Computed example of a mutant assay.
Amino acid sequence: MAERTWRALAGTPCWVSLMARDLEMAQHFYGGLLGWEFRSARSDRLGPYVEAMAGGWTVAGIGSMAQSLGFPVAWTVFFAALDADAAAQAVRESGGTVAVGPLGFQDGRAALAADPAGAAFGIWQGEKTPGWRMRRSRGVPAWIELQTRDAFAAAVFYGEVFGWGSDPDDRGDVAWEHDRVVLRVDGHPVAGLCGGAVEAAPDPRIRTRWDVFFAVPDVDDAARRTVGLGGEVAVPPADTPYGRVAALRDGEGGLFRIADLRSPDDPDSAPRTTPLS
């Protein structure tokens, strides 16, 4: 299926990217687990970079700059901005920090920042393909969620930076539901902010952070295959009101989550759009 360019609604998640050390190791792990294929992408000053493909759609990026920049191996969620420089300034004014940029990257501008509680995120000004938001199939990001201590304080910060709840076309809204703050676009949930999640995490290495949930057909099978691919299971598969989920680490320690696309009551049901936690 041919891709088309798409400009995300300002302030909403538009891309996920892994900052790895060993690009070949990352491709082997995620390709084996999520069925991704890869293509080289121009990265200008930031070193080798590939884009991951799932079902013909571009769904994520992987770069091998973690070691050179001194950053930990981690997934980063990027939020769309009409003006990356203005968004970065809003981060500073609202109590967050800007670690890198904004600077030119591919055909846009990007920055890496952190909220007042220390959760890292990215800012992106430009166009991205819509695969990870438009299709819910194997290997596609199905949901992002902030694991933090105070969801309401976090919502105030991100609302100030990205203008959540002030969309003039009323396409985006923020509400409290399912014990979390939920950001919706066109009526569909795209992100959640979960308070108290850090203290409750079984893995003490799970800190305040944005988590990416990748869709898989079978969470238990994916968790078993993770170990054989060199990764580890951080939080074992468990049933939730929204399906079966697990937290995993890749071979370099990068944390991410997986979610079963099938309804717990109907294994043949279509993928759902309800939030996952």
Rank of each mutant, 00 (worst) to 15 (best):
R136I: 06
R136K: 00
R136W: 04
S137G: 05
S137W: 01
S137E: 09
R138G: 03
G139S: 00
G139I: 00
G139T: 01
V140Y: 01
V140K: 00
P141E: 04
A142R: 02
A142Y: 06
W143S: 04
I144S: 12
I144Y: 03
I144D: 08
E145Y: 03
E145V: 03
E145A: 07
T148E: 00
T148L: 05
R149K: 10
R149C: 07
D150H: 13
D150A: 11
D150K: 05
D150E: 11
A151Q: 09
F152R: 11
F152N: 13
F152I: 05
V156W: 04
V156R: 15
F157D: 04
F157K: 09
F157H: 10
F157V: 03
Y158Q: 12
G159I: 03
G159V: 05
G159Y: 07
G159A: 05
E160M: 07
E160S: 10
E160F: 03
V161D: 02
F162Y: 12
G163C: 05
G163H: 01
W164Q: 14
G165C: 15
G165A: 06
G165L: 08
S166L: 13
P168V: 10
D169A: 10
D170C: 02
D170S: 09
D170K: 14
R171W: 08
G172M: 15
D173V: 02
D173H: 11
A175W: 02
A175H: 10
A175R: 15
W176D: 15
W176R: 15
W176Y: 14
E177L: 06
E177G: 07
E177S: 11
E177M: 08
E177P: 01
H178T: 02
R180E: 05
V181M: 05
V181A: 08
V181L: 01
L183E: 01
R184E: 08
R184A: 04
R184W: 10
D186W: 01
D186K: 04
D186M: 09
G187D: 04
H188I: 14
P189S: 09
A191W: 10
G192D: 11
G192Q: 13
L193K: 09
C194V: 12
G195K: 06
G196Q: 04
G196F: 07
A197I: 00
V198T: 14
E199L: 05
A200N: 06
A200P: 00
A201M: 12
